[in-house]
Amino acid sequence: MTLDWSVVWQHREALVAATGTTILLTIATMAIAVPCGLIVAALRLYAWAPVRTLATAYVELFRNLPLILVVFWAFYVLPIWTGLGLSPLATGLAALALNVTAYNAETFRAGLNSIRRGQVEAAMALGMSRAQALRRVIVPQALRRVLPVLASTWVSLFKDTSLVSVIAVTELAYVAMQVRAQTFRVLEMLTAMAAIYWLLGYPQAKLVDWIQRKYSVTE
């Protein structure tokens, strides 16, 4: 078997664009899932009981479904429900955001719960409202505590974006597979794909390690 690596070079533009889409998907998903996760966590902890139940149901549903199923579900069901013809990219983003928001909500809930009661009391003794105590005292501390976990989620998400290739989002996995199908250069394309994911993923993982060291809790 002869290897022909030129196929990778020939399709460099498509691969670079696809890598850009992968990065964009990761950033956009987190940009949605961090604030939404925090809101869902706050609802689960502090909202009126029926809202709390709804938030819990959401988290438990999406945390316990395979992501690929959510992706397919978003592709087939969302257009029927919303009546909107969403692009594959928007559909993939919605599926990823639904999933990661549920994970982040759990992360934030653990973080918010880890701040001891005395901190709220100290804030309230100063005359703060519960909302002010949450915003000024509890959330900033909880964010620091969960930052390493969020960073790990980020690295997982970066790789999991490949799952939206099943609905033809032109991200890295999809494009690499397309080139493979057209050229039959299976080994070359899979290797190229692995190399790109690894080269981008490894520094992120190292960054996570650094964040974990830097923000380890000191009280």
């Binding site: 005395g118 901190q119 009391e121 100290a122 804030a123 309230m124 003794a125 100063l126 005359g127 703060m128 409202s129 005292v137 501390q141 000191t218 009280e219």
Partner: peptide, 18 residues
């Protein structure tokens, strides 16, 4: 809350904002 703001409180475990 307005009344509380006129009473300072100091706790056994300090409860400074870390």
């Amino acid at each position: 809350r307005a009344m509380r703001a006129r009473m300072g409180m100091v706790f056994q475990s300090f409860e400074l904002f870390p």
